[in-house]
Each structure stands twice: as C-alpha cells, then as structure tokens.
Design a binder for these strands. Structure first.
Length: 424
RNA sequence: GUGGGCGUAGCUCAGCUGGUAGAGCUCCGGAUUGUGGCUCCGGUGGUCGUGGGUUCAAGUCCCAUCGCUCACCCCA
C-alpha cells in the first residue's frame, strides 16, 4: 500500500504495544522524583531562539546545526526546544521561583534536534529532567546521583554504570583547553580529519575519539583533573566520599565532557552497553553560572536529563515492564437488538464498581467471533446476554481463565459476583 | 552533512540464469443453529517504495529518486 502522507523523518509514533513501557518509565520517574521533594513544572515547547543560543552556547553542535528554528507571523525567531534546562531556568527566573527559595523542579516532554536519526536518537525525542536550584553542593550533587541510581534500579536496569567527572571552574577549564590545543598542535601529524576540524571548536571532544590511530596522542594529553583548583578538588572529593558512604559505585572518567557550554564542576552520566552507539541513558551536571548569565542573581544549580526512548528500549529488553491491566470483563450479546440492554448493564456496572474494566462487544458478530474477541481482549470472564437472560433480568458468566463452571446470575447480583472473582 | 545494509500482503519473509506474484502469522467465515483457546477447511488482503530505461516480456537487469536502518559526527 502506498500511503501519500507519512510521518516526518525522526518523529515516531508510540504504538499501543509500546505504551505500557512508556507509562512504566514515566510513572517511575514521577514517583521517585516526588519522593525526593521535586515538584512538577510544565513548560512551553517553543521558546525564543536567543534563549537557547545564549544558554547552550553559540558554537555547540546543537545551536549551530540542530535546532528547529522558524520565524513566526510577528517576525520573531522561535525554536522548538532542543533541551529542557534553558526553559526551566527562564521560567524559574521569570516567575520569581528563585527568590529566597531553593526549588527542586522536574518536567517531562518532547525535545527536538535536527540530527540524522539512528538507534536511540530521534529528531523528536522525550526527556525527563530534574533541576535543583540554590544549593552549591556537594550534597545535592551526590543526592541527585543517588536519586538517578534509584530510578534506574526501580526500572529494573542492572547493566548501567555510573561515570562521574569534575570540569572545574570556567577559568581552569579555559587553561586546560589552551594546553590541550597546544598538545594536539604539537602532534598535528597524528590527528585525523575530525580532530583537526575540532581542534579549536571543541578540543575536549578529541579525547573521546574512537580512532585507534590517535590512541597514543590522546593518552599522552594533559589530564583535566590535574588542572583543578583547590576548591574544585575539595568539591569533587566530597561528592565521591558521599557516594562511597552510601555504597554507590562509580567510575571517574576524566574524559567525560558534557556537550553544552553551561556545564561546570560536577558532571555525571549513566551508560548502558546495550544501546549501540548511543549508550547514555541519563546525564547531568552542575551549571552554577547559567542563572546569572540569564540575568538572575548568581544561583548555583544542578540537574539531569534522561532519554525516555533509550530507557524504554532497555526496560523492554530487561523484561521489567509490569503486565498491562487487561479487560476484566467482556460483554457479548447473541442478538444485535440486545445492544441497548448490554450498554445499560455495562454502564451500571461501571458506576457500581469504579475499578472494573468492562468492554462491550461492538459491531455484532457471531457468538464464536465475539467469544474469540473476549478471549483476545485478555478479559478474565465473558458476560453473555441472550434473549432469555434479558427477559429474566439475568446474565450468564463464563470464566475464561479458571475452572469455574459457567452459570447464570441475576443482573443486580453481578457486582458481588464479580468482586468475588476479583479477589480470587 | 558523510558512508554501509535494506525496501515484495497488516507483520516476518521466500521468489534461481528475466516468462502472468507465494508461504507462515494475523483477520473473516465454516466444521460446532447461543460458547473462546487446540485442530482441519475455505476466504479477504499486493499499482513488488516511486519514476524512467533496456526487452516480445522486468519483483528480477540499468539509471535516478524517496524512505527505513546502522555507523560516523553529536548527544538523552
């Protein structure tokens, strides 16, 4: 079949088969975040372009080539949000949430980046984000990491590992960056094309290269950790001590660099081996300079974002998605003329039993096909209404899963009977 | 943006050196006049991604194009 209009590349549908896993991931985040004192904030999907270009960094890949930017009817440049932190900071500042308060906020929803799609990477993707404002750490840093670990465990994910790093202050990072460029320039003959291109735009990224030919130049490069000042050292040590005290395993990865300009100090990343090339499942870090940069009073902050699609794929592979609640009762009728009675019975049942799931067969069909639908709906039992039952104010109950013999009851006794089935 | 792999039924796929489109699953009906699952029988469903070319003849060969997918880059 040739369908004339299809979805946009990289914008996927979440089909009914997949939605239980999505709900599981979303509900787990909501539940654990609330338990740690985070409150939900709902933010616009479109913001002024300048919000992102200024906060994320003009020369990052996101801003340079990945944003969905358009001009609206007023001539303003608007952008579909590529990430959540900028909008959250904007809202917190604009609405006065940061005034004499240390809010902890979480949000969830779609983000948009115009990249080439591949496994675990889509143009519309979904994140859950959490941001904690006003606390300089290291206690929040550690708690946020512990929270993210708890969420991943609650999702039943075992094979995810925690990597942490400290990017130091913007001054020490600039000094490190300069030395790194010098180092790579001195060994320019060993660099591949990508590395040469990134030498000035993003030299820290060269450290991540997977090219074995460059392993030696990279290994001999200066280490960021050697550049940290005493304060950053102390902060990093304290975070590590807190993780150790709570039994949270981690690996220090001095090559761990976040892609957005506003990150500094503590950064962390949860990584899975089962996702192909896009293994990062949840990542975050401290961004103490961002609030002030956006016009607010200097306010320390830290946050993380998790990729729902990646987590859904892991959770499905791990088989940890709880079974979907299926239809408990499926009502069928032997004559189409009984549809009125069937609807009335179902409505009355739903009113009397608020938690009951009951589906009425629609569109007729033979007894055989109706029962087949009842079976495939996953219902625990079928309610069968024929002319004789209807006339007598009764209905027939057929147990589709257990051993109970089929029998007929008065309709007003149905709630009691179904409850007894339910507690079985 | 660059490269590899792949586009045949709703799904998973077969279709040799060109000779009028197939299987399994699903769905619908029947075997069983008001009784599902298992079995058996039958049926619905395709402009073979799209456009052009070669040929008496193209799912098959050639060209272009679109899409999907994985990887690079980058990131959740």
């Amino acid at each position: 079949m040739t369908i004339s209009i299809q979805n946009i590349r990289g914008f996927s549908d979440v089909l009914p088969d997949e939605s239980p896993a999505w709900q599981f991931v979303e509900q787990t985040f909501r539940h654990e975040l609330e338990r740690y004192g985070f409150d939900e904030i709902r933010l616009p999907i479109v913001e002024k372009t300048a919000l992102f270009s200024r906060s994320i960094g003009e020369v990052t890949d996101i801003v340079e080539k990945e944003m969905y930017t358009f001009t609206d009817r007023n001539g303003d440049s608007l952008t579909l949000r590529p990430e959540g932190t900028a909008g959250c900071v904007r809202a917190a500042l604009q609405r006065g949430l940061l005034h004499n308060a240390q809010p902890r906020l979480w949000y969830a929803g779609p983000m948009f980046r115009h990249e080439r799609p591949q496994k675990g990477r889509y143009r519309q993707f979904h994140q859950v984000g959490a941001e904690a404002f006003g606390v300089p750490g290291p206690d929040v840093d550690a708690e946020l990491i512990l929270l993210s670990g708890r969420i991943l465990r609650a999702l039943g994910l075992r094979d995810v590992t925690l990597e942490i790093n400290n990017l130091g202050t913007s001054e020490t990072r600039a000094r490190y960056r300069d030395d790194l460029i010098k180092h790579f320039q001195a060994h320019a003959e060993h660099l591949d094309d990508d590395a040469r291109r990134r030498l000035h735009s993003n030299p820290l990224r060269i450290l991540d290269s997977k090219n074995p030919a460059m392993a030696e130049v990279i290994a001999s490069a200066p280490d960021l950790l050697d550049y940290m000042d005493a304060e950053a050292q102390a902060h990093f040590t304290a975070v590590r001590a807190m993780l150790e005290a709570t039994g949270q395993a981690y690996r220090v990865n001095s090559r761990l660099v976040r892609g957005l300009d506003y990150y500094g100090s503590t950064v962390f990343e949860w990584v899975s081996e089962h996702l192909g090339a896009q293994g990062t499942v949840l990542a975050g870090g401290r961004y103490d300079a961002l609030v002030e940069m956006m016009g607010g009073r200097a306010t320390p902050a830290i946050g993380f974002a998790a990729g729902i699609e990646r987590l859904v794929s892991l959770v499905e592979a791990a088989g940890s998605v709880p079974d979907k609640t299926t239809t408990q009762a499926y009502l069928i009728m032997t004559e189409p003329t009984l549809a009125q009675n069937a609807l009335a019975i179902a409505e009355s049942l739903r009113t009397q039993m608020p938690t009951l799931r009951v589906q009425v067969n629609m569109g007729g069909g033979s007894m055989k096909s109706q029962l087949r639908r009842a079976d495939r709906s996953g219902a625990a039992f079928a309610l069968i209404l024929g002319p004789s039952e209807a006339a007598a104010g009764e209905i027939n109950i057929k147990d589709l899963r257990g051993e109970t013999e089929q029998y007929t009851v008065a309709i007003d006794r149905l709630p009691a009977v179904l409850s007894s089935f339910d507690s079985r």
